[in-house]
Nucleic acid binder design. Structure first.
Lengths: 344, 344
DNA sequence: CTTTAGCACTCAGGTAGCTAGAGTGCTAAA
DNA sequence: TTTAGCACTCTAGCTACCTGAGTGCTAAAG
């Protein structure tokens, strides 16, 4: 994407911003009033025509104004946009609201998504930390029936995961208690599930395990218990999409998009595709490989615990979003979440 | 609601069913073909006119066919409708799907709602059992930080509930373990949370508690741990509402309804209003006291553990629903859930 | 070479008028 | 009591027309 002439920059910027504001194709006359340059509409028309040739604009029909293409928005986002930094009160207000949530991690993440969604009036998608990243505080077993064992994994932050599995021999609650004691004392404390599993694997290979029945059982059971389940996706404010003027007439598209949002697997793909890398990421309209989201943009940012990205938070809205305003919000929220997951 | 003449019954039934099918006002000519009687359209017109006077039908405008009113649907549901009982395969298929869910109660309920919603193509609202109804198998405490305690309540069926609360004095994990041992052995086994609480209250008043520190602490903690949290509402398939033809043109109403669905408090009211009684309940259109839902009907049924209703499952859709098909589904699903919560 | 004024042209969207079709209510006869 | 027949009503869809915003092109001015 080559740098354009300065005048082209100014005009493209004005077109994008005017289009974002009014959601209607922008014409040359309107622009004469919006740009700081003193040019006639005819001149602007020439520039617009150039920009169209370069692929930054397109006309819905011959005699209409221009609308930025995906490439136009992309250029705008990379070179023209000015980020509007958040006001201190704004940050303050968000972070106190987030602090108000109780200790259940999922509730906190849902709440945070809702806050973000309400602030910027677009849908919000959040990928919760995979269970592998849970920092364990405690592991417990409850015998439900002769060979059915419930495992409880309690995270440092108070998050609980649980799951039932079948054991291949009879076992009683006392034994389970001894096993969980062993695991809690020897293995678990302050490591993530992934780390814990690695340790267990290693231990299993060591001599000692072969000779101590309880240890061996504990490790085997621990291994089974920590097998990971899939990541969780949270969506808030989907109905915000209904309010977007571009969907007001096209009910079919709307339906399609909304039901995609209900389909967790589609969302998972969306996140795989657009949220895979770390840091801030912006996917605009047709850049999105999923058909359902070709008319939407996704702005997302990862949040982290110590050095690794453990989840993502993103905003999904029409291509015509106010990128300059929304990006700082998304970044701030991601930072806020990182802070929540920091060990302290 | 008085019984109508037989011919009126037949015609009203045909009108309701034809309207449900075609979602368009029903005219007299159409009816001549749909009813088993050999009557001319003029005669039918007279009957329709009578039915309109009685308030069962109305005309959107003078030269259009008739549409059933709320009263018309009500009469239909109470006297005319034939329930289509579920096929065995259908029941089989639903119940195996529900069985597939893992032990987390909320996940199971969500999944069940989704299955129901997909089968009947309408939104589904579910009120999860208040935590007081869980039959306890095990209670556990994990110390998260000095005064923050996580309580784990494991139900007999493997359902887990957890919650964090603050304790007013320092405590350590050993002590917590002793406390949970005491509670597990002396109090918990095979009683619901509510029952357990009652027992604890009684114990606390007895002499013994005053002299044994651990027992006292245990009872106090148990009391705190079992304080009930608010009921949880689950919504699945809201987007099904988008596909309803009656909303296709009226985007504003649609928006209103959809955002009401996102607002948990509104839903709570809906459930208070329409799901309060036990057994099957049907609320049609304007019978609903909430403005947002005046154009929707709710079919709901309670599910129970032993003798008390512990939650509700309901379908929310346009007034023009296929009541005869949907009601058996809702009833069956509620029974299925009751089964899940039964002690066995 | 760049800019601009001017003009012819295009197209969406709104309005008005017309028609067809579905449906009604009423009346008079069977 | 039922029905055939007829006049009437209203919606939905179609066409024609007009307006206004916007364009592209050309030729003249800077």
């Amino acid at each position: 994407m080559n740098k354009l002439a300065e005048r082209e920059d100014i005009i493209l910027k004005a077109i994008v911003e005017e289009f974002v504001r009014a959601v209607v194709p922008v014409g040359s006359r309107t622009l004469t009033k919006k740009i700081p340059l003193d040019l006639s509409s005819a001149t602007i028309r020439n520039v617009m025509s150039d920009l169209e040739d370069m692929g930054y604009l397109y006309q819905p029909h011959t005699s209409s104004g221009r609308v930025p293409t995906t490439a136009g928005f992309r250029y705008y986002v990379e070179r023209l946009m000015q980020l509007k930094s958040l006001k201190d009160e704004e940050m303050e207000s968000i972070s106190t609201k987030v602090d108000d949530f109780k200790s259940d991690m999922i509730e906190m993440l849902k709440g945070t998504s809702k806050i973000l969604s309400d602030r910027i009036q677009h849908a919000c998608v959040l990928l919760a930390p995979g269970p592998g990243h849970l920092v364990l505080k405690h592991i417990g077993f409850v015998l439900l029936s002769r060979r059915k064992i419930l495992v409880l994994l309690v995270g440092k932050s108070g998050l609980v995961q649980n799951r039932v599995f079948d054991h291949d021999e009879d076992i009683n609650q006392d034994e389970l208690d001894r096993i969980s004691n062993y695991l809690n004392q020897e293995v678990v404390e302050n490591k993530t599930i992934m780390e814990t599993r690695k340790i267990i694997m290693k231990e299993l290979r060591r001599e000692k395990a072969r000779y101590n029945r309880i240890v061996k059982k504990a490790l085997n059971l621990g291994d089974k218990a920590l097998k990971m389940s899939e990541a969780k996706i949270i969506v808030e404010g989907q109905s915000k999409i209904l309010s977007q003027p571009e969907f007001a007439e096209n009910l079919d598209k709307l339906k399609h998009v909304i039901s995609s949002f209900e389909e967790k697997t589609t969302l998972l793909k969306l996140i795989d595709n657009t949220m895979s890398s770390e840091g801030l990421q912006i996917t605009i309209g047709t850049e999105n490989p999923l058909d359902e989201f070709k008319e939407l943009s996704v702005i997302s940012a990862g949040y982290r615990r110590s050095d690794s990205t453990i989840g993502k938070i993103g905003v999904v809205g029409p291509v015509r979003m106010d990128y300059g305003t929304i990006i700082p919000f998304v970044e701030f929220t991601a930072q806020l979440l990182s802070g929540k997951f920091e060990d302290n």
